[in-house]
């Protein structure tokens, strides 16, 4: 096996043909992983390094058998084919184990009197509070109002972050123009902008949506920028070789390759939007799950304070589930190539 036969994707730094062939046969080559990981410190680069490394191992395996001589009669499965998956039942059981333990500790702590109800309301009181909110129809109204604000905010802010991230990632001029400002903006806590935004946008919906949008723009920008920068130039070259240019290149190759990062960004944007909701709905709101936090504080209801935390936790789970679903639909190849 010579250097010419080494597939696309092995950096030129692997100069020694012998070492190259040995590493490509034996599984994930150390030099390769390290080089790519150093190139850009992000998940997708690491993943693609692992992916391609496995690819070589699989491709090269039969070749080794042939060269192995007459003694070999059957195909030998590669030593590493990715982690073995647990069954869905076992996996779910492990998944809910820690939350259940936390719940049990909470229950026991409050029921035994070890934790005073002034400090932490018990699960019974929280379920009672939830029942009240459902009975008055407030829960639905609050969730809907907040979902609209957060949705609009993430759409605008995330959209802008995505756009700027792609621009900065794709073109040097774009990076020079956009990146310093975005890095400055990223360091400004959006909560510091609340008083200014009130005087600019009032206290109505515009203010709330703008606040969430500003909060969501930064993570989306940072992750998209990294993701686009991390796209393997050989993939881009290959796509160009097939005649892809312009928007087709951007939408067909670059953005799908950066998709893991973008979806991670979306996760963070949605979580940040919950923080934004608390800040925004403290001011001039009559409904919303952030407003519920304010109400619980103003009326000294510890049961509602804990209920708010539970609601946020459940929303966090739902956001994660939704993004996992999107990942499965939008990146069907990932299940086959990811390291785990």
């Amino acid at each position: 096996m010579t250097l010419e036969k080494v597939p696309l994707g092995v950096p030129a730094s692997v100069k020694d043909p012998v070492e190259a062939s040995v590493t490509s046969v034996k599984g994930p080559p150390k030099g390769l992983t390290k080089d790519l990981a150093n190139d850009s410190a992000n998940d997708s680069a690491n993943d693609s390094a692992n992916d391609s490394a496995q690819g070589f191992a699989k491709e090269d395996a039969p070749e080794r058998e042939v060269r192995g001589g007459a003694g070999a009669t059957a195909l030998e499965p590669p030593r590493y084919l990715g982690g073995r998956r647990r069954g869905p039942v076992a996996s779910t059981a492990v998944r809910v184990l820690v939350p259940l333990l936390l719940l049990a500790a909470w229950w026991y702590g409050t029921a035994s009197g070890a934790i005073s109800s002034e400090i932490l309301a018990g699960p019974g009181a929280v379920v009672g509070a939830l029942g009240e909110l459902v009975a008055t129809g407030q829960l639905g109204d609050y969730l809907l109002a907040s979902a609209q604000r957060a949705g609009l905010g993430v759409l605008v802010g995330g959209g802008l972050g995505l756009l700027l991230g792609v621009v900065a990632g794709l073109s040097a001029l774009g990076e020079e123009l956009v990146d310093p400002t975005m890095q400055m903006k990223r360091a400004v806590p959006f909560l510091a902008l609340v008083p200014l935004f009130i005087s600019w946008f009032g206290v109505e919906e515009t203010f709330k949506v703008v606040l969430i949008a500003v909060a969501a723009a930064s993570p989306m920008y940072a992750y998209t920028y990294l993701g686009v920068r991390g796209v393997d130039r050989k993939i881009v070259e290959a796509a160009r070789g097939f005649g892809l240019t312009g928007t087709r290149l951007a939408f067909g190759v670059i953005i799908p390759t950066a998709l893991p990062n973008i979806l991670m960004a979306l996760r963070i944007c949605l979580s940040v939007s919950l923080t934004g909701l608390i800040a925004a709905e403290q001011i001039g709101a009559t409904e919303g799950i952030g407003y519920l936090v304010t109400l619980a504080q103003q009326y000294y209801r510890t049961d509602y304070m804990v209920l708010c935390i539970v609601i946020y936790a459940v929303l966090g789970l739902l956001i994660d589930l939704a993004i996992r679903g999107v990942e499965r639909v939008a990146m069907p190849w990932r299940g086959q190539v990811a390291a785990r």
């Binding site: 759409l155 605008v156 959209g159 802008l160 995505l162 756009l163 792609v166 621009v167 794709l170 073109s171 040097a172 001029l173 774009g174 240019t245 312009g246 928007t247 290149l249 951007a250 939408f251």
Partner: peptide, 22 residues
């Protein structure tokens, strides 16, 4: 690089139009 810049500009223009509309 010119092609790439153009791609970026098109993406930028499209998103900006959508945002302005919204």
């Amino acid at each position: 690089s010119r092609r790439r810049t153009r791609a970026a500009l098109v993406v930028a223009a499209l998103s900006l139009t959508a945002l302005t509309a919204a």
